[in-house]
Design a binder for these strands. Structure first.
Lengths: 110, 110
DNA sequence: TTATTATATTGCAATATTACGATAAATAAT
DNA sequence: ATTATTTATCGTAATATTGCAATATAATAA
């Protein structure tokens, strides 16, 4: 097979999974951290920051964009990428919810 | 190529990426939600809950375990899986940190 | 128009993931 | 010891991901 059986799962589960998957690569974690560190969103130099070739970086950016983690707007010749607060908030809420429930559990068998 | 260049990134970035990647599949999100929903950690029936064959579920559990998201302990014939609060807390802290910084940003270009 | 700059796309090779049938391993019950 | 029960592993096919060189596209500058 090889393809995920996404149709058997809820939209919410697929959304969380898609966003988590997008973050599931160290280069993309590094991109997120870089976007967070620069106050302004000049993003052409992401390529210079990462140890990867330009097409590879472009592809990683595309995946983050497809998952909704980042947004991009054309700024002349350059493209300005930045984090999408909505997506981050969804993930933050997901993990906050789990954290609360896990820490409240009395019966922890493991 | 095909293999991630993990050696070029920090341990922290690789750790976050590995955990996010483990959650980056709807079946594994469903497993996490199921583990959260049952008060006791009887886990043999995860197979019955998911629309996947037993070997596939076993493989998904293995990936969650390798990433540190869940823990498992042998309980007679069955194996008791449960969420690992430590891993969840790391992810929660990561996204909380991003959330705070993103929401504080005044210059949002996109 | 002709560069120059910035980013995206294409094509391809190497590798990883997903899924499952068949089978193994390990414990419990008879 | 034999049989069920539960989970893991092996083998394999289909598909996805990663990475980059080469090239294309699009906007600005000269």
């Amino acid at each position: 097979m090889g393809a995920s059986k996404t149709e058997h799962f809820s939209d919410k589960q697929n959304q969380i999974a898609a966003m988590a998957k997008a973050i599931g690569h160290p280069a993309r974690v590094a991109i997120i951290e870089y976007l967070l560190s620069v106050d302004t969103c000049i993003c052409g130099d992401i390529v210079n920051v990462l140890p990867l070739a330009q097409p590879t970086v472009s592809q990683h950016l595309k995946e983050l964009k497809n998952a909704g983690i980042i947004k991009g707007s054309i700024e002349g010749t350059a493209i300005c990428y930045c984090l999408n607060p909505d997506a981050i908030n969804v993930l933050e809420a997901f993990f906050a919810h789990i954290t609360i429930n896990v820490n409240n559990k009395k019966t922890n068998c493991c």
